[in-house]
Computed example of a mutant assay.
Amino acid sequence: METNPPGTEDTPVQRFGRIVSEFAINAGYDLTSGSGGRAALAREIGSMSPSAVSRMLDGKTLPMPHQFEGIARAVNSDVRTLLVEAGVISAKSWPKDANTVVRSATPRSQPPSPEDAADAWGITNPGIRSMLIGSIKQAIRLQAETDGAVPRRKAAAKG
């Protein structure tokens, strides 16, 4: 692996793009301009547009958390390898033999808080942590709306 001159180290976003590019090329995608490889990768991922894939591969943006599995599947890898290799998370924060169930010190009757989940996964980078916590909170709100919509419809139908 080539190294950068001191003071010009890649950011985690740039490293992630480079790692995914390397894995994609090894998986058979031709990422050269005009080859259609980036569009093919986007189709295989399923949840990203070709322009979003290009921005990711160019080291300009990180994908959303829900896109990591599709990316890993498309490039014949796993999420942990991509995130650790790119330096987005440390190998200590997600050991290879780790049980992937999020555990919390809170009683089983209460789900872990979004902050507890981030702590359990060892997510310490402020940007990544904020993104994860925000995504969890949004998912909780959407589920509550979905769960709450059923009784309201029944009540309205009765009236």
Results as ranks from 00 to 15, higher is better:
1 M>S: 12
1 M>H: 13
3 T>A: 15
4 N>M: 14
5 P>L: 07
8 T>I: 01
10 D>A: 14
10 D>W: 01
11 T>N: 00
11 T>W: 07
13 V>C: 05
19 I>E: 04
20 V>S: 06
27 A>H: 10
27 A>D: 08
27 A>C: 07
28 G>T: 10
28 G>P: 05
28 G>A: 02
29 Y>C: 11
29 Y>E: 01
30 D>Y: 15
32 T>W: 10
36 G>V: 02
37 G>E: 04
37 G>I: 12
38 R>Y: 09
40 A>S: 13
40 A>Q: 10
41 L>K: 04
44 E>D: 02
45 I>R: 07
45 I>K: 02
46 G>R: 12
48 M>P: 00
49 S>V: 00
49 S>M: 10
54 S>C: 00
55 R>E: 14
57 L>R: 01
58 D>E: 09
58 D>F: 04
59 G>M: 13
60 K>H: 05
60 K>N: 14
60 K>F: 05
62 L>G: 03
62 L>I: 02
63 P>R: 04
64 M>Y: 13
65 P>K: 13
68 F>P: 02
70 G>I: 02
72 A>R: 01
73 R>L: 05
75 V>H: 02
76 N>Y: 06
77 S>R: 05
77 S>Y: 12
79 V>E: 09
79 V>F: 05
79 V>L: 01
80 R>T: 11
80 R>Y: 15
80 R>Q: 12
80 R>H: 15
83 L>H: 02
85 E>P: 03
89 I>A: 01
92 K>C: 06
93 S>F: 11
94 W>S: 06
94 W>I: 08
99 N>M: 03
99 N>I: 03
101 V>G: 00
104 S>T: 07
109 S>G: 01
109 S>A: 04
109 S>T: 02
111 P>T: 09
112 P>L: 02
114 P>G: 01
114 P>I: 01
115 E>S: 08
115 E>M: 05
120 A>D: 07
122 G>Q: 09
122 G>E: 01
123 I>Q: 03
124 T>K: 14
125 N>T: 01
125 N>H: 06
125 N>I: 02
125 N>P: 03
127 G>L: 09
129 R>L: 01
130 S>E: 06
131 M>C: 11
133 I>Y: 04
134 G>A: 05
136 I>K: 11
140 I>G: 00
141 R>Q: 13
146 T>F: 15
147 D>S: 15
148 G>K: 07
148 G>E: 00
150 V>Q: 09
150 V>K: 14
151 P>D: 13
152 R>T: 15
152 R>M: 14
154 K>F: 15
154 K>E: 13
155 A>W: 15
157 A>K: 13
